[in-house]
């Protein structure tokens, strides 16, 4: 049983690191501020969430897991507020997003 938990936790940790790296690459590759924000929100939701889940599986039912859950709740509630404040401040400052031209390129991945 403990082997299963170990494997699950390792999978979660590896997947979380992958999404964190994806967000980091996105921060470099994306063309303007607003699109970079979407990349950063991957780090804050799925990256952080999966790493915390992996650590929680490793810790089991202890106070450590409770603290990890608190860290998770903090990220879950505070990061969208900070992102929204940033986006709104940038918009009110007059930073306009680069919008796609009407129907030029297909946006299917």
């Amino acid at each position: 049983m403990s082997v299963v938990i170990d494997v699950l936790s390792a999978l979660c940790l590896v997947a979380g690191s992958f999404f964190c790296l994806t967000g980091g690459i996105g921060l470099i590759r994306m063309p303007d501020f607003y699109t970079r924000m979407h990349a950063a929100s991957i780090v804050e939701t799925l990256g952080a969430g999966l790493i915390l889940l992996g650590l929680m599986l490793e810790a089991g039912l202890t106070l450590i897991s409770v603290k990890l859950a608190m860290v998770g709740l903090l990220v879950f509630f505070a990061s969208p507020t900070a992102s929204h404040a940033l986006a709104r401040a940038a918009f009110l400052r007059g930073l306009m997003p680069e919008l796609a031209k009407a129907e030029d390129a297909s946006s299917k991945p």
């Binding site: 967000g23 921060l27 804050e44 940033l86």
Partner: peptide, 29 residues
């Protein structure tokens, strides 16, 4: 590595908001 990438964005970032966004990501990481 993610922190390094965000740091690069903070150094390059054309506007102050890009740098703040990078700082936020570095904080989460």
């Amino acid at each position: 590595v993610t922190i390094t990438l965000a740091l690069a964005r903070a150094a390059m970032g054309p506007t102050v908001f890009d740098r703040l966004q990078a700082a936020n990501t570095i904080g989460t990481c």
